[in-house]
Every structure is written in C-alpha cells, then in structure tokens.
Simulated assay, not measured.
Amino acid sequence: MSLTASTVKHQVQTPEIQLKDVEMRYPTDTGDVLALHQVSLDIGKGEFVSLLGPSGCGKTTLLRLMADLIQPTSGSIHVAGKTAKEARLAQKYGIVFQSPVLYDWRKVKQNVALPLELVGVSKIERERKAIELLELVGLEKFADQYPWQLSGGMQQRAAIARALAMEPEILLMDEPFSALDEFTRERLNEELLSVWNNIQNTIVFVTHSIPESIFLSDRVFVLSPHPGRLSAVVEIPLPRPRTQEMRNSPAFFELIARIRDSFEGV
C-alpha cells in the first residue's frame, strides 16, 4: 500500500502535556499585545511533536509557557500530570535553546555534568554520567575539549547531552539547529532521532522549517501568524526509522504542500 499524507485523527492515549484555552498577552505602553489566543492541545507520552509557524507566531512563547519560564494570562497547562510550575520544580524536563550556551572555561564533559553538579551529585558519578551522555550524542572523544574547540553542530550536541543529564521525561527544544548550515542540520536531525529512539522521552521541537518538522515528528502543530492560534494539527505517517531518502518521496512533498495549505493568513 502506498504511503500518503492523509491519515486518521491521532488519539492521545496518555497525555504528557495538556494545554487548554491558553492565552498570552504582553503589556506595552500602547496597550496589551495578544501573542497567543485560545491554544488547546494534547501531547502524548513518548511523542515527538513540532511547533511550526512563521516568525512572531508565538512558537517560542508556547514552549516557554510549557517550561514555566513565563506564565499564561489565562488558560491551564499541565505537564506530566502536574502544573507547569510543579513539573519544573520536579525537573520533569530539559531545555535546549537556539544557542548552546556552554561555558568556554569548562571542558565539554564538565558542561554536560553541570546540572548534576548543581544538585550535589558526586564528582565520580557525574563524570561517569557525562561520558555516557557524550557517547549517546557521539562526542565521547571530545570530552576533554573546550566548547570553543568544537564546531557549532558539535556544541549543540553537547547542549542536548547536558539537557538529558537529569534524565528528563520531556525535552523542550527551541529551534536548536536554526543557526547551522543545511547539511549539518539534516545530519543532526538524524542524530536527534537516534537519541530519541534510545531514550524514548517526549520531545517538543520548535522550528520554522516545514521539511524539518516533517522529517522529525509524529505530529506537527501549525501556528497561524500573530496572534498565534493553533491553525492545524498534521499527522506525519512516514514510517520509522526515518531516512534521508524519504525527503525525496512523493509522500514527503505531499506533506509539505498540506502543511503550507494549513497556514492561516499566509
């Protein structure tokens, strides 16, 4: 049977993240600015989903709300059965930002081990864990290097390893590969899926790249231009493991067209 972009509606059996009627307003000198309007969604445990949309649509704001870095104006957010604040305090998630934010004066293994150091894990145990995580992202040979000695892609892999140090149930990723060239980005897409296949946690990935969202995700949440609304939820029925050959398949191009058509106001 040939693969097409259409599929049955996804049923979330075990919601890991739930947002209901989430709205976000920012006060300004000329009045409140509505950034997100009435966003409701469920993300299943162990799912890989992308938040996709044009610049300014509220993707990063939505991710920051899930992480309890900011609080919504209205609506509710539950993460791993807890409020977003409770989940943050329980260290239910790790975060990877656009920039790796590594400390240049610390070796790569020391950067990865930093979260463990902050909670009082012994030096021997945190070094063991750091090496294990660096092996997971293919950087074990660079454990004693400094961040400035690594390429941009390698630095971002080290940041991913650090985000996994506390064994989070959820990994929140804010356009982590956007500053990289296309060749490096596609390779890191594959490596991220390999990591995810090993740890089987829930990943929420912010991107403005339609092909990237399709290649990585089980589902893509499409946000409309400002103010951000949930414009569509697109199933990605491509089989796993994903391969680079899939990027040239008719099903892949059909999904690109379907997502483009789902944008409101573009």
Rank of each mutant, 00 (worst) to 15 (best):
M1Y: 14
M1E: 04
L3V: 15
T7S: 14
K9A: 14
Q11A: 10
T14H: 15
I17N: 04
L19V: 02
K20Q: 10
V22N: 02
G31H: 04
G31T: 02
D32L: 03
D32W: 02
A35Y: 12
S40H: 06
L41G: 07
L41A: 09
G53K: 09
C57R: 10
L63T: 08
L63Q: 08
R64Y: 11
I70Y: 14
G75R: 10
V79G: 03
A80D: 15
G81K: 09
L89P: 03
A90M: 10
K92N: 13
Y93F: 15
I95F: 15
Y103T: 12
D104S: 14
K109E: 15
N111P: 12
A113C: 12
L114W: 04
E117N: 01
V121S: 04
I124K: 15
A130L: 07
I131G: 07
L139D: 03
L139N: 03
L139G: 00
Y146L: 04
R157K: 08
A158D: 02
M166H: 06
L171I: 04
E182W: 04
F183K: 15
E191N: 08
V204K: 05
V206P: 06
T207D: 03
I210D: 05
S213P: 08
R219H: 07
F221N: 01
V222F: 11
L223A: 05
H226L: 05
P227F: 03
G228P: 02
R229W: 01
V233D: 08
E235R: 09
M246H: 14
N248D: 14
S249Q: 13
L255F: 10
L255Y: 13
L255C: 12
S262A: 15
V266G: 14
